[in-house]
Write a protein that binds this DNA or RNA. Structure first.
Lengths: 197, 197
DNA sequence: TCCGTATTCATACATACGTATGAATACTAA
DNA sequence: TTAGTATTCATACGTATGTATGAATACGGA
């Protein structure tokens, strides 16, 4: 870990990586501080607690993620175009820990961290807005925009983590460039078919 | 926990509940044994280790789950009908811990437990088979059956865990009967639209 | 330079963890 | 009833956990 950066920054980066990959419970404060080349007490000192650091991490990785949603939603193009762009972004962007993080927390009975809730709220609102736009101009079929937004996001989120499923089971392999292009095309086609009126 | 059942049975039941709700790392052997009214050493004695118990739990909850998939796939009706039945089952069945378990493990970088892999393999194979059937009789559009199967399952799996999202964010609320019916209808409609040729 | 605050550091604390141990008890077949 | 195995039980071991403590050091403005 780059020792030039300030300690809280290093902690956020390392913790973000570890939490996203292993989950909150599987990562210890000692792992974080040692990889960040910080003292054991640094988490308590700079963030107050491990949980507070976790929330800060969600915030830090979630804000630019949601910003991308909002930015794409504000671009030019038909609503279906912009939805396609968001879906493609979620599928192809490198180092995008948010989807796995969101799915893991959703799948767990623990109370959702407030920053995670806010993050999902922003993402879904952006997509739901596009759905409403499309419904208004007749390009998207009728239906609850919130539900449709959830349906839209379900596939790219799941496909992203499903790249862990061996190819012989699911036919997904994110490492191969050509396979990835086919995957994006597949997901986009599937989503547009489910949305178009 | 019903003390009439044999200890390994009780351990499987309690551990299944806890692992499904909290995840492997957040559950301790002491929690399991105390709720199962068994001795602390019971996990080691009957299963060998906490991890072995985890695998046994996946196997025990996964087998009937996958059996349902295979059974429905073998029923009468058009392929789209049977896919609809599987999707409805995943969405409405009570006490179905498998989807959350699968999503959480997929979202985590740890090696997938072998029984979980086998479970997904069976589920996806059942759906992919139906897709192939539908492609053969012309009712389902062209496309990689494995990918289409993944696309089909993405929504019910995500919607099941998304019931944790407050209604004002996502419009999902599994507790209300009428809302649930609407949700099933929505998901089924969306999936059929994305599959039909 | 000096002072006061901010940060780092090593270490301690209490608790929790998964597993091992060996004695005690329960059970089953002869 | 007895012998032998299966299971239960309390407890111990070593290690790991998140956080607290107080001394040491670094730093920035007067």
């Amino acid at each position: 870990m780059n020792t030039k950066l300030p300690v809280p920054e290093r902690l956020l980066a390392v913790a973000g990586d570890l939490f996203a990959r292993e989950g909150y419970d599987a990562v210890s404060v000692r792992q974080i501080t040692s990889r960040a080349k910080a003292n054991l007490g640094a988490v308590t000192y700079h963030f107050g607690s491990k949980e507070a650091l976790f929330h800060a991490v969600i915030d830090r990785m979630g804000t630019p993620f949601a910003d991308r949603f909002v930015a794409i939603a504000a671009e030019r193009g038909t609503p279906l175009d912009r939805i396609t762009r968001i879906v493609t972004m979620v599928l192809t962007e490198r180092n995008l820990p948010a989807p796995a993080m969101i799915l893991r927390e959703l799948a767990t009975d623990r109370p959702l961290p407030p920053p995670l809730m806010q993050l999902m709220q922003r993402n879904l609102a952006a997509v739901a807005g596009l759905v409403r736009e499309g419904q208004a101009d007749g390009s998207i079929r009728a239906g609850d925009p919130s539900l449709l937004a959830l349906s839209v996001m379900a596939q790219p989120f799941l496909m992203r983590i499903a790249s862990r499923i061996p190819r012989d089971i699911a036919g997904v392999d994110r490492t191969d460039m050509e396979t990835q292009r086919r995957l994006v095309k597949h997901v986009v086609t599937t989503i547009i078919r489910s949305l178009a009126s």
